[in-house]
Computed example of a mutant assay.
Amino acid sequence: MEAARLTVEQAWAGPLPAPGVLEQYERVLPGAAERILRMAETVATGNIRVTERQAEAEIRTAQRGQLLAAALTLAAMTGAGAFFLLGNQVAGIALLSLPLLMLIRSFLMRS
């Protein structure tokens, strides 16, 4: 009868090799562990910078959208006021409904 074979597997996840493997690198090539650590730090720093830039771009996009919405609202309200002064109630109400619909939409999108 054959003896049962036992297989042992080891797994490691992360930006750095397992400590034992890192030690082996250092034995084979002195200074390799330091270089590997520096490389991992550089990658982590780069990822942080990319994330920061993405967040800044999203903020700028949101600010532009808010400015555009404010300008459009102001233009619609000014036009509505002008139509009301000229006696065209239908056009005034139509233009006044635009900012109101945008306001309702913004509140609904937050929920």
Rank of each mutant, 00 (worst) to 15 (best):
S106C: 08
G20Y: 01
A76G: 02
A91L: 08
A62N: 11
Q10M: 15
R49L: 10
P15H: 04
F84P: 01
G65P: 01
L22H: 03
P99G: 01
I36C: 04
G81T: 05
L100Q: 09
Y25C: 02
V90W: 12
A62Q: 15
A80M: 06
T73W: 07
G31Q: 07
A91G: 01
E34M: 01
L72P: 00
R27V: 02
A40E: 13
A91R: 09
Q24S: 11
A80E: 02
L22S: 08
P99S: 02
E23F: 14
R49E: 05
A55Y: 02
E9D: 04
L103D: 04
E56K: 15
L98P: 01
P17E: 05
M1E: 06
G31K: 12
F84D: 02
V90G: 00
V28H: 05
L108W: 06
L95C: 01
P99L: 05
L72I: 07
Q10A: 15
A57I: 05
W12H: 15
A3L: 10
G87L: 05
G46T: 09
A91C: 07
G87V: 02
Q54P: 00
A70C: 07
F83A: 10
P30T: 07
E2M: 14
N88G: 00
A3W: 13
W12C: 12
E23W: 12
T45I: 08
A3F: 13
E41D: 13
T7L: 11
N88M: 02
G14P: 02
E23Y: 11
Q54E: 08
E41N: 07
L37C: 12
E52V: 02
R64N: 12
A11F: 06
A55M: 12
R53Q: 07
P30D: 06
R53D: 07
L101E: 09
I104L: 06
T7Y: 13
G81A: 09
E56Q: 15
P19G: 09
N47K: 08
A70D: 11
G87M: 05
L67V: 03
E41P: 01
Q10C: 11
A33H: 05
V90L: 07
A3I: 08
G14V: 12
T73F: 09
V21A: 15
M102Q: 08
P17N: 03
M77A: 11
L100D: 00
P15E: 12
M1W: 06
